[in-house]
Amino acid sequence: MIARLYAGYALFFTYKMVVEHMIKIDNLTYRYQADGPTALDEISLSFNKGDWVSVIGHNGSGKSTLVKILMGILEGYTGNITVDGEALTQDNIQDFRERFAIVFQNPDNQFVGATVEDDVAFGLENQGLPREVMIERTEKALSAVNMLAYRRHAPARLSGGQKQRVAIAGALAMEPDVLILDEATSMLDPEGRNDILAILDEIHKTRTTTLIYITHDLSEIEKSDYAVIMKDGRVINEGSIEHIFSDTDILIESRLVLPYQMQISRAFLDGRYVTHDELVARL
């Protein structure tokens, strides 16, 4: 009897762990002008805790609008958003903001502090944390992005990739439930981009932070658990990476460019999802 009860509990918790939704969006609709076109058209999505979710779409597909609503920058939407089971309302937006952190596209325009460590601490200062906590968290976050050695550097002496790493550290220091990256690599050179993707991979392994990765580049989503394809304010496909790439026609219609291995797979392997190594193995 007891054993059965325990088994029941165990199952329940496993279930909770597996399907616990960090963010749940229901019928989200948004217009920039009251009588204008819909920027988001009845979007429903749910993101699991600790997942790396990629949101892919061409410019104007609605992905940035979605981010702005989640970050509380845009108001006046219809539909429901719940975070960790709690509904987001106009009143608690400030509390929610602390659970979300975001890294934007332009490395220069989000660097607030005079030095690397000041910038990382900026968000913590705003939360009114004691100084000892700030020092500890700043160091930890800078180590996580391999920038501790640069802590006293001014932004003018850093590369674009390094500035974005500092921005990620600033976000991590706030210990958010959700970290959003809004085209955070699009202005970087390949070296900078690979550094950022490697850091995200490390964060992803801890499974403590939900990553929402906004991009228009399909070659960057290999590591994500879940992908959402957006076009004209709608979600036109979502699912695992294998699932997303199983319908390459939808991707091409959405003005996206297939990664090279998928173009080749379309020609010779019926378009099934392959990585570079799998492609080599199958050809």
Binding site: Y260, Q261, Q263, I264, A267, F268, H276, L279, V280, L283
Partner: peptide, 30 residues
């Protein structure tokens, strides 16, 4: 990407005449 792919395939014994310079050329070569 294509260089990496062609070199990896060469190690497997798939050797092309010339080096394709983009994905479409690769598809033709293969």
């Amino acid at each position: 990407d294509i260089v990496r792919l062609v070199h990896d395939l060469e190690r497997k014994g798939v050797v092309f005449e010339g080096m394709p310079r983009n994905t479409d050329a690769f598809i033709t070569s293969y």
